[in-house]
Amino acid sequence: MMNKYEMIIHWSEEDQLFIAEVPELPGCMADGHSYQEAVSNAETIINEWIETAKNLGRTIPKPKGKLMYA
């Protein structure tokens, strides 16, 4: 499944890991020792987040693409 949710990826000095956050899916984030690993892990977590939401009968936000920040 191809995910179209925006990911924000940053380096965490505290954790010494890349962090990938998915703002459109509350609480959805992953980490990795490399940028690529963080993205790959986030793709897995996005699928798990969606599957869990379906199982619980919750609404799944539609991907909006690039978010606008002030």
Rank of each mutant, 00 (worst) to 15 (best):
M1P: 02
M2Y: 12
M2P: 06
M2E: 13
N3P: 01
N3M: 06
N3W: 02
K4H: 15
Y5Q: 03
Y5E: 01
E6P: 00
E6Y: 10
E6H: 05
E6A: 07
M7G: 01
M7T: 06
I8C: 11
I8V: 08
I9N: 03
W11G: 00
W11M: 00
W11K: 02
S12L: 09
S12E: 12
S12T: 09
E13F: 05
E13V: 07
E13R: 14
E13Y: 12
E13P: 02
E14S: 11
E14A: 11
D15S: 10
D15N: 10
D15L: 15
D15K: 13
Q16F: 10
Q16S: 15
Q16I: 07
L17N: 09
F18W: 15
F18G: 07
I19G: 09
I19M: 15
A20H: 04
V22H: 02
V22K: 00
V22I: 14
V22P: 00
P23S: 09
P23L: 14
P23W: 08
E24S: 03
L25P: 02
L25Q: 04
P26E: 08
G27K: 15
G27M: 12
G27P: 02
G27L: 06
C28T: 04
M29W: 08
M29H: 14
M29K: 08
M29N: 12
A30N: 12
D31L: 01
G32H: 11
G32R: 12
H33D: 13
S34W: 12
S34D: 11
Y35D: 00
Y35C: 01
E37L: 03
E37Y: 01
E37F: 05
E37G: 01
A38G: 07
V39E: 07
V39N: 05
V39L: 09
V39M: 09
V39W: 05
S40A: 15
S40C: 04
S40P: 03
A42L: 07
A42Q: 04
E43C: 15
E43L: 08
T44F: 13
I45R: 07
I45A: 11
I46S: 06
I46G: 08
N47Y: 13
N47S: 15
E48Y: 07
E48A: 11
W49G: 02
W49T: 08
I50T: 03
I50E: 04
I50A: 10
T52N: 10
T52E: 12
A53R: 02
N55L: 10
N55H: 14
L56A: 08
G57N: 12
R58C: 08
T59F: 05
T59E: 14
I60F: 03
P61W: 14
K62D: 09
P63S: 09
K64N: 09
K64H: 13
K64I: 10
G65I: 08
G65W: 04
M68S: 13
M68E: 14
Y69I: 01
Y69T: 02
A70V: 04
A70N: 05
A70T: 03
